[in-house]
């Protein structure tokens, strides 16, 4: 009997198993679980079918004709294949091929080809000696060339030192310019804030496929960050639009958490622009009826598996 806790932990890894995208230890855990879980085995079959279809997106390149002959020769050279298939008792069609064939008789075992390989090795040795001599000569040339370049660079350094005095005067002028730029920047920030508000409204009014927004808040203060979540009519995608959220502390990011009946699903991580504005795209699980709400927390860079930081925004679903 499979432990239900194992099932809950393993099932999110089935797609990774189908795509060969698990680390070795995770793969071993899934494999062990599959032996006793019919539900996961069935789901894996579906996922593997999806994965296998990707083969058909690859441009076709025919293998060389000699490959078929090589395989045939390898089979000829084997002990009766009946030994190989007896004892194979896999209960499901999940590939788990070892790095190389267990009793692979290589094509180069042929005496005729082996002779060719030996001759080839001798010729290669002679070629290596000749190449080494050429490389030695080229290395000497390269050393001379680099020495000349170093002399040129030393001359350039003297010229740069002389220019530094002039640059100090220029720096004072730049400081004055920076003050003016700072004043202009403040005006630009105000305009950008207004533009962000317009973008916000545009999302809601221009896309008929999107739901009525549910509003998120970071508190009751007038300057508290605000958010708005809209879901697509297909129930699989949502956008969280955020305004007025301070940049995350250094080494941290913001992360969205989607709250479903009985579970919290990690969503995307994000940062905000200097006006605290961001639009975050979220994958939903396709069943909007189970969606309860969402929240945003501060998490370490790279995100977390479960919420660990301070909640800065939260709201409920429709």
């Amino acid at each position: 009997m499979t432990d239900p806790r194992d099932h809950q932990a393993i099932s999110p890894d089935l797609a990774g198993y189908a795509l060969d995208a698990l680390e070795d230890d995770a793969r071993a855990l899934v494999k062990k679980h599959l032996a006793g879980c019919e539900d996961c085995t069935s789901e894996l079959e579906e996922l593997m079918e999806g994965a296998a279809s990707l083969v058909f997106t690859v441009p076709t390149v025919a293998p060389p004709e000699r490959l078929g002959e090589r395989i045939s020769a390898a089979i000829d050279a084997e002990v009766p294949a009946s030994d190989a298939v007896v004892g194979s008792d896999r209960t499901m069609p999940i590939p788990d091929v070892p790095p190389g064939p267990a009793r692979h008789i290589p094509w180069y075992a042929s005496p005729r080809l082996a002779w060719g390989v030996s001759t080839g090795l001798a010729a290669s040795f002679v070629a290596v000696v000749a190449v080494a001599a050429v490389i030695g000569t080229r290395l000497n040339d390269r050393v001379d060339e680099l020495s000349a370049q170093v002399a040129i660079q030393e001359g350039n350094i003297d010229g740069i030192s002389a220019s530094l005095g002039t640059m100090e005067q220029d720096a004072k002028q730049v400081q004055s310019d920076v003050q003016q730029v700072s004043q202009l920047q403040e005006s630009a920030d105000t305009l950008e804030q207004q533009l962000n508000d317009l973008r916000w409204l545009q999302y809601v009014t221009s896309t008929g496929a999107w739901s009525t927004p549910s509003f998120f808040s970071g508190g009751l203060q007038p300057q508290a960050p605000q958010g708005m979540l809209i879901t697509h009519s297909d129930g699989e995608e949502a956008r969280l639009i955020i305004n007025g959220l301070a940049p995350a502390p250094t080494g941290s990011v913001y992360q969205v958490w989607l709250i479903y009946e009985g579970s919290v699903i990690p969503g995307s991580t994000f940062t905000v622009d200097r006006n605290g504005y961001a639009v975050v795209t979220l994958d939903l699980l396709g069943d909007a009826t189970e969606y309860v709400g969402a929240s945003v927390t501060v998490e370490p860079s790279g995100g977390s598996e479960i919420p660990t930081g301070v909640v800065v925004l939260e709201g409920t679903g429709q």
């Binding site: 999110p12 995208a21 996922l47 279809s53």
Partner: peptide
């Protein structure tokens, strides 16, 4: 691997797993 993808895309591992699962199911 899933872990490498999460790192490269700067996304939580759980998000990568969910995307793979949803994507393969939809494809199929």
């Amino acid at each position: 691997t899933q872990a490498e993808i999460a790192q490269k895309l700067d996304q939580p591992l759980g998000t990568v797993k969910t995307r793979m699962r949803l994507g393969l199911k939809k494809l199929r």
